[in-house]
């Protein structure tokens, strides 16, 4: 029992300690790391992946996985730009409608992924991987491989308007984190994610409609992917079929490194936040201390394995596939 307690504690606090350690390490090597400018840079870079991570956290808590985010974000970003331009090209001139429209679009895409997974009974990792390909493909189809630009000062204020030195989108992202936390802890849906992740059959036996919870989870994740797409567009001022590229690896890594167990039921939004920060601090810190940033993927790969191994109780898992 005692052994187990320490194990659980290690898992609970390890991500936060790792984050702290990294910050201390990088600051020690180069004090400029802790400068306000650099922190703003980290926060900005972390914002789109944070949204994706929040979305996928709900899915992982259910014990499923979603690998469709690259396609979903690319498609949403492209559609958002096209719609935005069609609606006048300026936030003031009716183009704001593109925002709710694209959120719905994201929800629909997520729901579709959920349907492929739940209705066709395909394991989620494959269903979502395939849907991710479909999303990217659709983005290519819509744009014909071109880049779509948005030049609206009002919309770009998300990036350019700074409050306390941080761009507006960072503040909005913080609010969205709180929203996600609220959904997780204070709504039936959020709690049902945990019920499904903790014991799907038991939840079903207790009368929880597991299928509906899963579909809702994927749709909710889709909404967050759409938000990520909007932030991505605001940050880059453009969208194309690769806007979402590399988000899958970063988001999954973040969530897992943050301490959300792949087996479901453990961890949550706050873990995802810590995870995203760890990943981005590593990425930024390597540059700050003068290491090439392409070592990042490899390092993250190693970290993700360590996190999964730490969080897996191998007595309970007879074999992995």
């Amino acid at each position: 029992m005692k052994m187990k307690l320490t194990r659980e504690n290690v898992i609970r606090w390890a991500p936060a300690l790792v984050l702290l350690g990294l910050v201390v390490l990088f600051t020690a090597i180069n004090p400029a790391f802790l400068s306000q400018r650099n922190l703003a840079r980290i926060a900005l870079a972390a914002t789109p992946p944070m949204m994706v991570a929040l979305g996928v956290t709900f899915i992982i808590v259910m014990g499923s996985i979603d690998l469709s985010m690259e396609g979903a974000v690319s498609l949403c970003a492209v559609l958002f730009c096209l719609l935005f331009l069609k609606l006048g090209g300026s936030l003031g001139a009716g183009a704001w409608l593109a925002i709710p429209a694209i959120l719905l679009c994201g929800a629909f895409f997520g729901w579709l992924t959920g349907m492929v997974h739940v209705r066709l009974q395909i394991p989620s990792f494959m269903a979502s991987l395939a849907m991710g390909f479909v999303g990217t493909g659709a983005a290519v189809l819509v744009t014909g491989g071109d880049i779509v630009r948005i030049d609206d000062d009002v919309f770009r204020a998300l990036l350019t308007w700074r409050i306390l030195g941080f761009p507006l989108m960072v503040h909005i992202a913080v609010l969205l984190v709180l929203l996600a936390w609220f959904i997780q802890n204070h709504t039936t849906l959020g709690r049902n994610f945990y019920a499904v992740g903790g014991g799907e059959e038991l939840a079903h036996a207790s009368g929880v409609n597991v299928r509906r919870v899963r579909l809702a989870g994927f749709a909710l994740a889709g909404v967050f992917y759409a938000i990520a797409a909007i932030f991505q567009v605001a940050r880059l001022g453009q969208a194309e079929s690769v806007t979402g590229a590399n988000l899958m690896f970063i988001a999954i890594t973040s969530v897992v490194v943050g301490g959300v167990a792949l087996w479901g039921g453990i961890g949550g939004v706050l873990n995802a936040v810590v995870g995203v920060l760890i990943v981005n601090v590593i990425g930024n810190g390597m540059v700050v201390i003068g290491l090439p940033n392409y070592l990042q993927d490899g390092l993250l790969g190693v970290l993700v394995i360590v996190a999964v191994v730490l969080s897996t109780d191998r007595r309970l898992v007879s074999f992995a596939k």
Partner: peptide, 18 residues
């Protein structure tokens, strides 16, 4: 048949949260 990662009250009212 209790879900271990939920609180006691959530387990008691699981499926009847409405």
């Amino acid at each position: 048949s209790l879900i271990p990662n939920l609180t006691v009250m959530e387990n008691i009212f699981l499926g009847y949260e409405a």
